[in-house]
């Protein structure tokens, strides 16, 4: 094999490495999701398990509810804006969505918390964010969130803001 052929062959192999690494960059996306799921980090839309149901009646925490949509023709709001709970107490709130588009739409909600670290003390037993929601044209739906605030919540936190954002699941025009 002469030098030119050898060079060409090596060039091809190196180019394959480069292309492979370009693909690897994209493969990191699902990989990251899997790692997070396996380690239980960033598990915003999974059901929490609660073992300690001791109610700490000595203090109350204000839960503020917020709702947003992103590029979605839905009206989305909580039925109450805020409520008071004791840590360890089971509570349920309701949200309402109205599909304003003349076509079925599928959406997924993601929660976020303020302060950020309060998220790990806000245990959701039931939430519409656990699954994708598909609404028929004009449909109105009321959905519960059942939660417990972990009594281990640091004592200096007396308000938790829970904010849900609905975004459209692309390519799922509600046919499911």
């Amino acid at each position: 094999m002469n030098l030119e052929q050898a060079n060409r062959r090596l060039c091809m192999r190196l180019a394959v490495i480069a292309l492979g690494m370009f693909g690897f960059g994209f493969a990191l996306v699902p990989f990251y999701g899997q790692i997070c799921a396996a380690l239980g980090v960033n598990s915003l839309t999974q059901r929490d398990s609660v073992s300690n149901t001791q109610i700490d009646a000595s203090r109350t925490v204000t839960i503020e509810l917020d709702s947003n949509t992103r590029d979605l023709p839905w009206r989305f709001r909580p039925l109450v804006n805020h409520l008071q709970v004791h840590p360890g107490e089971l509570a349920t709130v309701e949200y309402e969505i109205v599909n304003q588009r003349a076509a079925p739409v599928t959406g997924q909600a993601v929660p976020s918390y303020g302060p950020q670290f309060a998220g790990e003390y806000f245990k959701k037993l039931e939430c519409f964010c656990f699954t994708q929601q598909t609404l028929a044209p004009g449909e109105t739906r009321r959905m519960p969130v059942t939660f417990v605030v972990d009594p281990k919540l640091p004592r200096d936190v007396n308000t938790i803001t829970v904010s849900y954002t609905f975004f459209e699941v692309a390519g799922r025009g509600g046919k499911s």
Binding site: L14, I17, A18, L19, G20, M21, F22, G23, F24, G25, F26, L28, V29
Partner: peptide, 14 residues
Amino acid sequence: LLAVMPVLAGAVTM
């Protein structure tokens, strides 16, 4: 470079 520049290209492409 061969291993990481394509990853940066992927990140900015995303």
